[in-house]
Amino acid sequence: MLKKSGILIAALMVGAVPLTQAAARDLVIVSNGGTFQEAQHNAIFAPFAKKTGKTVVEDTWENGIGVLRTKVEAGDSGWDIVIAESEELQIACQEGLLLPLDFSKLGGEENYVPGAVSECGVGAAIYNHVLAYDKSKISAPPSWADFFDLAKYPGKRALRQSPKTSLEFALMADGVAPADVYKVLATPEGVDRAFAKLDTIKPSLVFWSSGGQPMQLLASGEVVMTSSFNGRVTNAINKDKKPFGIVWNQSLQTVDSWVILKTSPNADAAYDLLKFAGEPEPQSHLPEVQPIGITSAKAFDLIDPTLRADLPTAPENAKNVLKINDAFWIDNIDALTARWAEWSAQ
């Protein structure tokens, strides 16, 4: 009898724990860790907690639509706000994993730069795939056309081991205006043209897979130019004092966004935090740890002037930039990845 009631109590407790948790669970925000999250913690999470007296619990993840699916599948699993890459945002939104956002609760769409507003996500960080070069070997900033010109600048070059970004760069080097790149790439002739352009420098190409490799390749003298995430280049120049240059012209831009999971029991608190995250003052502190492009339309002038020149959102850097077309890549990634694998193995 004693045993039975013990089991009963245990069962009640097990049953009761999720209930109390669901009612009083703290707001959980999930970002990518590292200096990126450190910047967000200093600029947004900590000031928000201080201002509102609410607890903000932080977690990290390394992206992947599979993780989002699992998190939503079985109801609330402990995450409220998550940072998502642009393709994840699109796919997860279409699959109904995310809460469609009401921008009137986030300070209005006009509060944000144009690329930062989407159905289920609000922009958190803007960054670019840029051309980085070794100033000790190349005197003037090269263009993507120069990247493909072995006679003008001899030496090896590095590109990301992926058709995404590489095909866009090849077309721009071949004279396609940024605005027309995806129109051209949507045709079979356009794809052939991009691969033909890549063929011209194929023996001199090295490929990178993880974000740290391009700066290592450049620093070791293995390559003279490479594509890279802009933050890595700026850190190499400012922190490691490397003689590298960064070319913003014809760079490719993408946005990471905050999303609220459909299963979040804290949607109101999540809106509060995201509204705060979109305000100019907190945003202006984001670039202090890492050159993160900010998404508030009004915050740029508040940023420490010494940091502005390194940001993707600086007016002089944003002049001739192409936004990566996620819808195009969601539809074409399979066919073009197969073609890329074939091409690179030949």
Binding site: I91, Q94, E95, G96, I330, D331, N332, D334, A335
Partner: peptide, 22 residues
């Protein structure tokens, strides 16, 4: 059909032809 299911199907059919979503 609801939107999530149509999106999953478009994704599946795009393995064969990227034009299926459109």
């Amino acid at each position: 059909v609801d939107r999530p299911r149509l999106a999953s199907l478009s994704r599946r059919l795009s393995y064969e032809d990227p034009g299926f979503r459109a």
